[in-house]
Write a protein that binds this DNA or RNA. Structure first.
Length: 668
DNA sequence: ACTACGCCCCTTTTT
DNA sequence: GGGGCGTAGT
């Protein structure tokens, strides 16, 4: 039984009676084991598995806890436990209840918002520069996550100078909501908002006996209100206010702080024995974090004994010398590289470290950061998948169309609109089965009427046979016709194929993807003198197909295309394949532990990041970030910074956290 | 009106 | 290396 090897504190928490339980679990105190034991306790006491909901911060964490439980319980029981991130859980519940939603990444919705902002004028109101669409999106997201109600009012109370635009911004966002609805889009926040509303209005009746919340300190008001909307009989919230580092996403430390006041029957448990870090590491971490206000009493006890090396401060003259020096130390450590992490405040630090390690032949892995899923060829592949699932997805349509010469954003949009009219809002349906009764209207461009491009008839003549008789054929250019013909062929080839991996295989083999791959390879093979490097082009194309194939093999794990698409949209920190030294931002390091940890670029302005510390969480949040970073270390901890940057143009002061940790730093 | 292309900007943290 | 913006070209 998992409960048998718990310490008394952990046991008390794991076997707590039903009710509103808050477990204050400091870093390294066996939080995961306690949650696993709690679920085991619930199952053993006869709670039906499907009445348990486990909310974690990453899907990986949820999967890990379930796999631990699978060792003690029947797999068919464990598979009935609902577990995942807030977002993954909400998505699953909404879909299971018939909500038809296409989840879109923030980057794509920023693009959609941008197209709306672009049509607005601001300068007739004021000379003040208006916010960019990206910034407005983030602001709106923050507003939603912090439980906001009236954007315009909220905005005015927060931002005095930009208040002149508050009405326009609010109207833009109203239109944004309409557009999202029209194209069937939802973003991360929408998942939570939709579910919350559905629960409140009784559209979804999902009862849980107990909801367990991991990383409770990073819950924001939207998430907190969603927990309440479930109306579960019992809560088991596990967190540590000293590790709250998501204020920028609306995480509110007062949610954990006010637990006692919000729930009358609240019981507070504390896990105080640290089994992870050596005494000297813990001492350093606690000394710094003690400067922050204490929300609950903590008496940290060291669970490990033995002789460990003291944390070391490494000071370098130059930024690059720092990365090189760290790589050198790493190569000399007698620790497996998988047990080493380099942790930084800003992702911009990662490149230098990666290069320095590479030079010494040391393998490293970085979390997802762009590369694979954001590459053009994978994005196009996902867009094609998206179109199969959602015929209203205009952004996927434009993304695919752009690889056909002569089709840019505006032309693609026009074609999409025409097709939509043939398919009652669904462009793909409009292409496959145009409604003969639909009347289509098209805003003709003036230039056409002036006869500037007079080959309208000959253009139609050139259309591929498959598209010649389509209702919108008379509006199409040769390129547009070619694109729709390829798309039509693609849709017919994939019709009725459910298996995700088979789908991907067919997509990759389709003429439309072949054209896309060729177009991308072509662009990447243009030499400086504008000639084409043909051998390079072939090589790039092979690499593109190879990458596409690796996505195909990932798809094998999913039962159908829409399950696979869900994974693509929701999966956290996409695959950190291979082995080697982990390169992590502090946020990405959350929940992990390593034998040896390097916290780098500990310079004032860099870490703490001064620009950010003036924002939501303030310097206290930066201090918590420092606390999280150093408490990842089990045995060895190295702290470092450089006095100057590469070009010596900027000089850095040591981070205030180094002083707070008790390091004596000599003056120049 | 729209697309293609070259040049300059910068780069917080995550589901 | 990507996105924003001005310019040339269809």
């Amino acid at each position: 039984m998992p409960l048998s090897h718990l310490n008394p504190e952990q046991f008390a928490a794991a076997s707590a009676p039903f009710g509103h339980n808050l477990i204050i679990a400091s870093a390294g105190t066996g939080k995961t084991s306690t949650i696993v034991a709690r679920i085991a306790h619930l199952l053993s006491s006869g709670v039906e598995a499907s009445k348990i909901l486990l909310l974690t911060f990453t899907n990986k964490a949820a999967a890990e806890m379930l796999s631990r439980l699978a060792k003690k319980f029947d797999k068919s029981v464990i598979s009935r436990v609902s577990a995942g991130t807030f977002h993954a859980t909400a998505y699953a519940l909404l879909r299971a209840n018939g909500f038809d939603i296409t989840l879109k990444q923030p980057s794509e919705l920023k693009l959609l918002l941008k197209s709306i902002v672009g049509q607005r004028k601001f300068h007739h109101i004021s000379d003040i520069g208006a916010f960019s669409a990206a910034y407005l999106y983030e602001l709106y997201s923050f507003f939603q996550n912090t439980g906001g109600d009236d954007f315009e009012e909220w905005f005015r109370s927060k931002n005095s100078e930009q208040s002149v635009y508050s009405a326009i911004y609010a109207d833009i966002l109203r239109e944004f909501e309409e557009e999202k609805k029209r194209f069937g889009y939802a973003d991360f926040n929408d998942l939570l908002l939709y579910l919350k509303r559905a629960l409140k209005e009784g559209d979804i009746a999902q009862e849980f006996t107990e909801i367990l919340v991991d990383e409770y300190q990073d819950t924001n008001l939207l998430q907190s209100s969603l927990i309440d909307a479930f109306g579960a009989k019992s809560l088991f919230c596990v967190g540590d206010y000293d590790q709250s580092i998501y204020a920028f996403n609306g995480a509110d430390i007062s949610i954990i702080g006010s637990f006692k006041e919000r729930y009358k029957d609240a019981k507070i448990y504390a896990l105080n024995t640290n089994y992870r870090s050596s005494q000297s590491i813990l001492k350093l971490a606690n000394r710094v974090i003690a400067i922050n206000p204490r929300l609950y009493e903590k008496e940290l006890k060291v669970g490990r004994e033995g002789a460990f090396s003291q944390p070391r401060l490494l000071v370098y003259d130059d930024l690059f010398a720092q990365y090189k020096g760290i790589a050198q130390i790493i190569s000399s450590l007698k620790v497996p590289s998988d047990e080493i992490a380099v942790i930084f405040r800003n992702n911009s630090s990662a490149d230098g470290v990666e290069i320095a390690l590479k030079e010494l032949g040391i393998a490293s892995k970085r979390k997802g950061s762009g590369s694979f899923f954001e590459s053009r060829e994978i994005k196009a592949l996902i867009s094609l998948v998206s179109l199969l699932l959602n015929g209203k997805d205009i952004m996927a349509f434009i993304d695919v169309a752009q690889y056909f010469k002569g089709l840019g954003e505006a032309k693609s949009k026009q074609i999409f609109e025409l097709l939509s009219q043939c398919g009652a809002g669904d462009a793909i349906a409009g292409l496959l089965r145009p409604d003969p009764k639909a009347t289509i209207t098209h805003k003709r461009r003036k230039n056409y009427e002036l006869g500037l491009f007079d080959d309208e008839l000959s253009v139609s003549e050139n259309l591929p046979a498959s598209i010649k008789n389509h209702k919108i054929a008379s509006f199409l250019s040769t390129e547009g016709g070619e694109f729709l013909s390829d798309l039509l062929y693609f849709l017919k080839a994939l019709k009725g194929v459910k298996d995700a991996s088979a789908c991907l295989g067919l997509i990759i083999a389709s003429p439309i993807y072949e054209k896309i791959a060729t177009a991308i390879a072509h662009k990447k093979s243009i030499r400086k003198d504008k000639s084409i490097d043909e051998s390079q082009k072939e090589l790039t194309k092979e690499r593109i197909i190879h990458r596409a194939r690796s996505l195909e093999s990932i798809a094998k794990n999913y039962k159908d295309l829409s399950a696979f698409y869900n994974f693509l949209s929701l999966s956290d920190s996409q695959m950190s394949a291979g082995s080697g030294v982990s390169l992590l931002s502090v946020h990405a390091s959350k929940g992990l532990e390593f034998e040896a940890v390097f916290v780098i670029d500990l310079a004032q302005n860099r870490f703490p990041n001064i620009r950010l510390s003036s924002g939501a969480g303030g310097i206290e949040e930066e201090r918590r970030l420092f606390y999280v970073a150093v408490t990842r270390a089990k045995n060895e901890l190295f702290l470092s910074y450089a006095k100057y940057d590469k070009n010596g143009k900027i000089s850095y002061e040591p981070s205030q956290f180094l002083k707070e940790a008790g390091f004596k730093i000599e003056k120049e």
